[in-house]
Write a protein that binds this DNA or RNA. Structure first.
Length: 719
DNA sequence: AAAAAAT
């Protein structure tokens, strides 16, 4: 039963999609009237032509022919490597001077004069920072979607001639500098070569086979591609309910062993939790009940019975919080208005493509509006952002009174996310909702200059959306005061409780208003959030969606058991396709190397990981979103929350270590009821671990011994 | 290992 289709009126995929909605021209991002906020002076400059297919192809061709290029191996021994200019063509091109040249721009400072900060910060920041719009966003700024593309597009730089600009190189901060081209910057990175572990270094012999393969230029004529969304009907897939037998799943055992886990019982003993056990017994939960069939499962039975051992270091499934399970049927015919949202917000949601609520939204919105603390679990792509974002705005509006536009007012809501890209994306959904009732949002995250963010805060915002580091930073600087924050959201809440995140998050939460409402959301919400629940939440309502098991999933999971030497070629073959592909690598270095490798064989690909500066991260993600590139190679920075339309294939070049990571990575595809495939590459020696991980994730996947030339590989790439 | 603040 395609639950997500229920109330979606045939357009389920759009419900939560921030990029859906009226598209506005990116050429007029601000008001043309000087009387209005967000007035944006029209630049009397020529618009740079976009790269068309021919130019792209040409660009690809201006790389030296394979035979003339240095042997591949030298890529890893920097010193021996000859000049590499040819390899830089892609990134260098226009991206180069943008920042420098901006200084040549005539007389813009006055426009920012009301800001206390030095004029040049905001200039420098302009590329990197998605935050820019919020300055213009307020009333007249058009749909936010154009923001990303504006910032990312290469077209900008050439608007200002390099010659006019004073030499300034020395003034660039570290973050901005490497921005020019990650390829160059890579050379600056210390000891790159030795960062590759044996596992990452693939055999090179696969190179030869590549020459025999057909040219890839067809990749550049994206426009000829037929639309494919309609090709799959979920109903064609066989039902799979019978695959799991509840009793076989080791996932439950950890419950019993919870006592062995230190640091947990003390803070979250079941007895402490009021109003929980009595409300939901585990056995009531429908998601379990439909699994009582036989246990046949995939083609790798190895650990079916072997999963019962528990060791403290295992990647265990923490006990799921007992939750109210909303049934998809319960949502039929319900509108956002019925749930308590006002007309403006409802209309804003409709513009975002959310015409009627998804189950998780129907479940949590009333409780949020009622002021309760809420824990929400809905699987990836089920619409969680709106589930907390819309009622949050409604609440602020109700309580805002007349102070909504008061200068320097303190934020009353805070949304925390684990990555900058996710914070940006969340803002993309919440901002239009907030704007519809006259509330302001701002993004506060690192990697971009602080000036604009601080300026926005000083003018006054209602909702802060950001990542922990910069938020703490601004708090310490006295530029951000959370004392009036009455609603705090933790997206990816379980992740925010992981080592490294938990303490900053706790510190931040303590700075919010005492007794403020807390909303914790994640697709994998579990008792890992106990540390926060105990300290910050009062009698939380816990919601999940019934029937979110694999039987109702739209994702097809495959595990390819391969020879290590075949890995490179396999990835190339899988990525050589016309639809969007997301490849996960475990390390930044490997992500980078894989990107190079794909480029070397003519597959346009970009990377996303923490070694890139924020400008490039934003730009590269936008390239995938916009379809200018179809392959993104990422670390787990992209594992959670990131929504890109129509990623139809996720390749895990490295298998994840945690079942949650698997769930989040694979959740980048198959969103909102669309079809998707997840392919995980493992070597023989990892089969057992992988099987156990999948059991914990309650995912049924076929394990197949695979060679790059197998039909299966071609078939997977084609779908 | 990655992420999240700069410095």
């Amino acid at each position: 039963m395609p639950k997500n289709n229920k109330a979606g009126g045939g357009r389920p995929a759009r419900n939560f999609d921030p990029s859906y909605g009226p598209k506005r021209s990116s050429s007029s991002p601000g008001s043309r009237s000087p009387k209005h906020r967000g007035f944006r002076e029209q630049q009397p400059v020529e618009k740079k032509a976009r790269w068309n297919a021919d130019e792209r192809a040409e660009r690809a061709n201006d790389r030296a022919p394979r035979d003339e290029r240095p042997a591949r191996n030298d890529r890893f021994s920097r010193d021996e490597r000859p000049a590499r200019t040819d390899r830089f063509s892609r990134d260098e091109r226009p991206a180069r001077n943008d920042r420098d040249s901006r200084d040549a721009r005539p007389a813009r400072n006055d426009r920012f004069s009301r800001d206390e900060r030095p004029a040049r910060n905001d200039r420098d920041s302009r590329d990197a920072r998605p935050a820019r719009n919020d300055r213009f966003s307020r009333d007249e700024r058009p749909a936010r979607n154009d923001r990303d593309s504006r910032d990312a597009r290469p077209a900008r730089n050439d608007r200002f001639s390099r010659d006019e600009r004073p030499a300034r190189t020395d003034r660039f901060s570290r973050d901005e500098r490497p921005a020019r081209n990650d390829r160059d910057s890579r050379d600056e990175r210390p000891a790159r070569t030795d960062r590759f572990s044996r596992d990452e270094r693939p055999a090179r012999n696969d190179r030869d086979s590549r020459d025999a393969r057909p040219a890839r230029n067809d990749r550049f004529s994206r426009d000829e591609r037929p639309a494919r969304n309609d090709r799959f009907s979920r109903d064609e897939r066989p039902a799979r309910n019978d695959r799991f037998s509840r009793d076989e799943r080791p996932a439950r055992n950890d419950r019993d062993s919870r006592d062995e886990r230190p640091a947990r019982n003390d803070r979250f003993s079941r007895d402490d939790r009021p109003a929980r056990t009595d409300r939901f017994s585990r056995d009531d939960r429908p998601r379990r009940d439909d699994r009582s069939g036989s246990g046949s499962r995939g083609s790798f039975p190895a650990s079916r019975e072997a999963g019962n051992r528990y060791s403290p270091n295992d990647d265990v499934v923490l006990e799921r919080l007992e939750a109210d399970a909303i049934q998809a049927e319960d949502v039929e015919g319900v509108t956002f208005g019925d749930l308590g949202l006002g007309g403006n917000i409802t209309r804003a949601l409709a513009e975002l493509g959310a015409e009627s609520p998804f189950p998780i939204q129907a479940a949590t919105i009333p409780d949020v509006l009622a002021g309760r603390d809420v824990l929400g679990r809905g699987r990836t792509g089920s619409g969680k952002t709106i589930a907390f974002g819309a009622p949050l705005v409604e609440k602020l509006m109700e309580n805002g009174g007349g102070k909504n536009r008061q200068m320097g007012r303190k934020p009353r809501a805070l949304v925390l996310a684990p990555t900058r890209e996710l914070a940006l994306q969340i803002d993309g959904t919440i901002q239009p909702i907030a704007r519809s009732v006259g509330l302001f949002t701002t993004q506060i995250y690192g990697g971009v200059p602080q000036g604009r963010q601080a300026g926005a805060l000083q003018r006054g915002v209602d909702i802060v959306i950001g990542t922990p580091g910069r938020i703490e930073d601004l708090i310490e600087q006295g530029r951000l005061d959370l004392s009036e924050v009455v609603v705090t959201v933790l997206d990816e809440a379980d992740h925010m409780c992981d080592l490294g995140f938990l303490e900053p998050v706790q510190r931040i939460l303590r700075k919010t208003s005492n007794g403020g409402q807390k909303l914790l959301f994640s697709a994998t919400l579990d008792r890992g959030v106990a540390a926060l629940v105990d300290e910050f939440l009062k009698k939380p309502a816990v919601h999940e969606v019934a029937g979110e098991d694999q039987a109702s999933s739209t994702i097809d999971h495959r595990v390819l058991v391969i020879e290590h030497k075949d890995k490179d070629e396999l990835i190339e073959r899988l990525a050589n396709r016309d639809e969007k592909t997301l490849i996960f690598a475990r390390t930044r270095a490997y992500a980078e190397r894989l990107t190079d490798q794909l480029e070397d064989v003519g597959i346009l690909a970009v990377a996303l990981h923490g070694d890139l500066n924020q400008a490039r991260r934003t730009r590269n993600l936008e390239k995938l979103t916009s379809g200018r590139v179809n392959v993104l190679v990422a670390t787990d920075v992209a594992a959670r929350g990131i929504h890109v339309d129509d990623i139809t294939l996720v390749v895990q070049a490295d298998a994840p270590d945690e079942y949650k990571t698997y769930m989040h990575r694979s959740g980048r595809t198959g969103r909102a009821g669309k079809e998707g495939t997840v392919v995980t590459l493992i070597t023989r020696s990892r089969q057992r671990r992988m099987a156990e991980l999948l059991e914990r994730a309650e995912i049924d996947a076929e394990f197949v011994d695979t060679h790059p030339s197998d039909d299966l590989v071609a078939e997977l790439a084609t779908r």
